[in-house]
């Protein structure tokens, strides 16, 4: 089972790297979105600093959302999903592997880009540690929640719009506590509570989302 998990992660990462544009688009979207905010708000350092945490998180959510449609869509269209559902490996494990690969190819690049953009937005250096930790705890949750949405909209026309309506409301807790952790760190207050909640969200989605996703995929292949 672990071998199958590793095989699927390796295949999906390889697919993403060969179609290099996929991961790159997500990062490029993240950068452009944040830069647009900087241009829109203007060069007032104090304002930029105030909104930096929120802008980074909102753009990270949107960038993560942008990449969700390819999580199951191509496998669904070319018949691979049928075959994956018919392997000796439980579908929940396959889902977990695909979400892991998705996080490696989108969440990880976002985490790597975030501190650079934080500098651009003049974020207080006291918030950098909190930003990184919150992103590390939060982005896997985004991939996990997104997987449920991506599986539910398979086969639907204009699935992309539907997907954002399904998934974005569920992203709100991650956004709230992700931003709050950074703000607390900047103001010199304790951030432990926010990280505990982000960790709890990650553990909860880790248990529930693969199960919900595999149920949705079974519906999709019927």
């Amino acid at each position: 089972m672990m071998v199958a998990f590793a095989d699927i992660v390796r295949r999906d990462v390889r697919l993403a790297l060969r179609q290099g544009a996929d991961s790159l688009t997500v990062v490029a979207f993240f950068i452009i979105g944040v830069v647009l905010f900087a241009f829109g708000v203007g060069p007032e350092m104090a304002v930029l600093e105030r909104i930096s945490a929120g802008v980074l998180w909102v753009m990270a959510l949107l960038a993560s959302l942008l990449s969700l449609d390819r999580l199951f869509q191509t496998d669904y269209e070319d018949g691979s999903l049928d075959l994956l559902a018919l392997t000796p490996t439980p579908l929940g494990v396959i889902v977990a592997a695909k979400v892991t690969a998705h996080w490696l190819t989108t969440g990880l690049p976002l985490i790597a880009t975030a501190p650079v953009l934080a500098v651009l937005l003049n974020m207080n250096t006291a918030g950098f540690g909190a930003l990184m930790l919150a992103m590390i705890l939060g982005t896997p949750t985004l991939s996990l929640i997104g997987a449920v949405g991506a599986a539910l909209v398979l086969g639907a026309r204009r699935g992309g719009v539907l997907l954002s309506l399904l998934v974005l409301p569920l992203y709100i807790p991650v956004l709230v506590f992700g931003v709050s952790a950074i703000d607390s760190a900047v103001m010199g207050m304790a951030t432990q509570a926010q990280f505990f909640i982000l960790g709890a969200l990650l553990l909860g989605t880790l248990v529930l989302c693969p199960w919900a996703t595999q149920a949705a995929l079974r519906q999709a292949v019927e």
Binding site: R11, R14, L15, R18, Q19, E77, D78, G79, S80, D82, L83, A85, L86, T87, P88, T89, P90
Partner: peptide
């Protein structure tokens, strides 16, 4: 269902060949 997945092979209309592999 997993044991059945190990025992049965389905060849459908779609060939599940990834273009970049």
């Amino acid at each position: 269902p997993e044991a059945h997945g190990g025992a049965a092979r389905h060849v459908g209309h779609m060939d599940a060949v990834k273009p970049v592999l």
